[in-house]
């Protein structure tokens, strides 16, 4: 395998969790809910996936554990913001703080253990295609899931009636309510989906990216996923492009360190964060296009009139 392919493979590994988490958050935000707790749900997913894998020996059970735990954790956010109409920004932060704490506690006995890496699933024949084969058809299950997710989310949001209803809830919850759509239930489901995706992305960290548990291993990537949704102006395909761009940035930083370019490693490590800021500036400086793209009810609580 050539060096280019090797680098592209690492880019894909770095981009996959970002794409998954950002797609989940995109659906949540399209329903009008801003869940800033992605980082917390991700880290819970990472720790539960790792612990389940260590306990059962099967990384596939780990994937399920990560996804389910992320979804359950997001339910806490849903209950506070949807049922008790608490402030979404503050509750999202609470979710992140709690997630970092709980994951640290659950994972402590497991830190330092080396885990089982999620095995590759090789598609016969297809994986022999030069260049593309090893990149696209010799990957782990989570990568394939991310690809399915891209098409599924796009199809669901823009080609199905339920997707249309979800978007209408995000754009004007009172009109949607007047039309007889159950706003709260729609939002609960969207939040759950976002949580499941964040949990799955977390599972990728502890099963594929670095198969072990270290505290705070998500290292702000939940926040980068949030930024990706803004970057993508709430469109699934742009999330994919953005996710792979960010994957490339964070990988180029690792390779630059390996080649010993004379820049201090801390500056290179800061690159993904600075890139996020730069991208946010470019995307949002035009107030009007931002307004057009943002779901109009984003971040606003809804209490049905009775």
């Amino acid at each position: 395998m050539g060096i280019v392919e090797a680098i592209l493979l690492t880019v894909i590994t770095a981009a996959t969790p970002l794409v998954i988490a950002a797609l989940g958050e995109l659906v949540t935000e399209r329903s009008g809910v801003l869940n800033l707790g992605v980082e917390g749900m991700m880290i819970i997913g990472a720790v539960c996936a790792f612990v389940a894998t260590q306990q059962t020996g099967s990384p596939y059970i780990g994937i399920i554990a990560g996804t389910v735990s992320g979804a359950l954790f997001s339910l806490l956010f849903g209950f506070l913001t949807l049922t008790l109409v608490a402030n979404q920004v503050a509750t999202g932060l609470a979710l992140t703080i709690l997630g970092l704490g709980v994951s640290g506690m659950i994972g402590e006995p497991y830190s330092g253990q080396s885990g089982a890496k999620l095995p590759q699933i090789v598609f016969p024949f297809l994986s022999d295609i030069p260049y593309l084969g090893p990149l696209l058809f010799k990957q782990d299950l989570i990568f394939y899931l991310s690809i399915v997710l891209i098409f599924a989310v796009n199809w669901f949001l823009f080609k199905t009636r339920t997707g249309l209803m979800l978007r209408s809830v995000g754009d004007s919850h009172s009109s949607a309510h007047a039309l007889g759509i159950n706003v709260i239930r729609t939002r609960y489901l969207a939040v759950l989906f976002g949580g499941a995706c964040a949990g799955l992305a977390g599972a990728q960290f502890s099963l594929v990216y670095t198969p072990q548990w270290t505290e705070n291993m998500s290292a702000g990537r939940g926040w980068i996923a949030l930024a990706l949704v803004v970057f993508a102006s709430w469109r699934p395909w742009r999330v994919v492009i953005g996710g792979y761009l960010f994957g490339a940035v964070s990988i180029s930083q690792l390779h630059a360190q390996a080649f010993g370019i004379g820049i201090p490693s801390q500056f290179l490590s800061a690159l993904p964060y600075l890139a996020t800021v730069a991208v946010l500036i470019v995307i949002s400086h035009n107030r009007r296009t931002t307004l057009i793209n943002t779901p109009a009810s984003l971040g606003k609580s809804f209490v049905p009139d009775r």
Partner: peptide, 26 residues
Amino acid sequence: LKAHLNTNEILTSLMLVYVAQLFLDW
């Protein structure tokens, strides 16, 4: 960034935390 370029302050202020930590480390 928020006042003049309309950039979301939640994300930018948080990203800069990591930058500050790395700067101190360096």
